[in-house]
């Protein structure tokens, strides 16, 4: 009984000390982590925005989030959106921009952890180049040996592009 009390009080003290320390570090780093996340998203958005775009506005229609890119005169020149799907060994996340007619302007892979040297080929220009200026529902080529990774990326883009265009036209 005496031991039980001693053990639990020692463990309690240690946990209390650690929790205080963690709370402090969390308080310091939380705003910084949020800021980093925002910056990363913004950087990705900037990279896929059409060259003549001057503004990007976040829109949310029926749980589908996308960005409307407009040029200087305020005319709509494209949409940007995040596409995500499970690949072979990780979630493949891409940032994509398309014209209002559904032509793909640019594709950038934000996150992937596919097999290095095999699935990771989906980040190479050789693969991503085929999307440029094609309609999103074109039959794109997959990569030999990395069918699952490349198919996941292609399908995630096709599906999300169709949904974004539908949502945007509905409005």
């Amino acid at each position: 009984m005496k031991d039980t009390l001693r053990f639990s009080s020692v463990l309690f003290l240690i946990c209390f000390f650690c929790a205080t320390m963690l709370a402090f570090v969390h308080g310091v780093t939380e705003p910084k982590i949020a800021e980093q996340k925002r910056l990363a998203q913004e950087r990705a958005l900037k990279e896929v925005l059409p060259e003549n775009a001057s503004s990007a506005e976040k829109k949310q229609i029926d749980e589908i989030t996308f960005y409307e890119a407009k040029d200087k005169s305020g005319a709509l020149i494209g949409f940007c959106f995040l596409a995500e799907r499970r690949g072979y060994s990780s979630n493949i996340k891409t940032m994509v921009s398309i014209t209002p007619e559904g032509k793909i302007i640019k594709v950038k892979v934000l996150e992937q952890n596919e097999t290095p040297g095999i699935g990771s080929q989906i980040t190479e220009d050789k693969f991503l180049g085929q999307f440029l200026n094609q309609r999103f529902d074109t039959a794109f080529d997959t990569i030999t040996g990395a069918t699952i990774s490349s198919e996941a990326l292609i399908n995630s883009i096709k599906e999300k592009a169709a949904r974004v265009l539908a949502a945007a036209n509905q409005k």
Binding site: C15, C18, M21, H26, T29, K32, I33
Partner: peptide
Amino acid sequence: CFIVVIASFVTIVELLMAAFAP
């Protein structure tokens, strides 16, 4: 006791890394 201390420091490293070396 060891595990509580170690886990706390690992969490601190994780938070610091996410904030300063994302």
